[in-house]
């Protein structure tokens, strides 16, 4: 219940922030640009639109996740707005969870609108919906799962470091995670100290690359039901672990 109130307030804060709209406008511009680009290529219009559209949604979504995520908790501590929340019958972990859900909710709404934009562009281009569009929908859902994960570790980082540091770390995590497939194969075949590091990194860093199916989907390939289930489960469990860790740190932390 209280988690819901905190989430709603976090959502309200994000929605009243102008930065959010700037980013969304950029995302729409990118989708529009890919429509224009599509007109000057031959044969790959749909691929181009789907690829660039998904990239735009992911890029701006992750940007929002990181830039709102770093201030989610630390800003409240800095400005001391936590004082009047944590001295109410609210548990600290409830606060963390509420803030997290608030941002995830914001991202869900964003992704929904940006996804609508992409589908409108698709419709404009092909004048019909095809079966393969379902998989584009799944790809958008996976992009949202990426944001769910990014928000969780950004929040964890910001629970023990400054906003700038957290942003840098979160961005690195995201980039490394996008190559995590390569990390996994490296950990399987490397030797010695490299193997140890690659293995640790491969398991600690989230597997973002598994959640990126845009190339396959752009080529009209199907996404298996089992893949959807596994990816969803993974995203939920991984972010759950991150949020719990953030709550654990927050639980013991001094509020300045």
């Amino acid at each position: 219940m209280r988690i819901g109130y905190i989430a709603a307030n976090t959502f309200r804060e994000a929605v009243r922030d102008r930065v959010l709209y700037n980013l969304i406008v950029f995302a729409f511009l990118m989708i529009g640009a890919s429509l224009v680009l599509g007109q000057i290529t031959i044969g790959v219009e749909r691929e181009l639109l789907v690829n660039l559209g998904l990239a735009a949604i992911a890029f701006f979504g992750v940007l929002i996740a990181i830039f709102i995520g770093i201030g989610l908790v630390s800003k409240e501590i800095d400005k001391r707005t936590v004082y009047t929340v944590l001295t109410r019958p609210v548990q600290r972990w409830q606060f963390i969870l509420g803030k997290y859900f608030g941002l995830v909710g914001t991202l869900a709404v964003n992704t929904f609108f940006m996804g609508c934009g992409l589908f409108l562009a698709l419709l404009y281009m092909t004048h019909k919906f095809e079966r393969a569009d379902i998989y584009v929908l799944i790809a958008i859902f996976f992009v949202f799962l990426q944001m769910v994960i990014v928000t969780s570790f950004t929040m964890l980082f910001s629970s023990f470091s400054t906003p700038i540091e957290s942003a840098v770390m979160a961005f690195c995590f995201f980039v490394i995670g996008s190559f995590s497939t390569d990390l996994h194969s490296l950990s399987a075949s490397a030797k010695g100290i490299v193997k140890v590091f690659a293995t640790i990194a491969a398991y600690v860093v989230p597997n973002i690359s598994a959640l990126n199916v845009s190339t396959a989907v752009a080529h009209g390939e199907a996404v298996a039901g089992a893949t959807v289930a596994l990816n969803l489960g993974y995203a939920l469990l991984y972010s759950g672990a991150m949020v719990a860790a953030a709550a654990l740190i927050f639980q013991r932390r001094n509020m300045k």
Binding site: Y5, I6, E13, D17, T87
Partner: peptide, 27 residues
């Protein structure tokens, strides 16, 4: 209990009514 911090600062994107409603929910 109730607590007034020193030089209080609140969510400045809220109105006074919104802020107090939020706190009433939490309390």
């Amino acid at each position: 209990i109730g607590f007034l911090p020193e030089q209080p600062y609140f969510y400045d994107y809220l109105t006074a009514v919104e802020l107090l409603t939020y706190y009433a929910q939490l309390s």
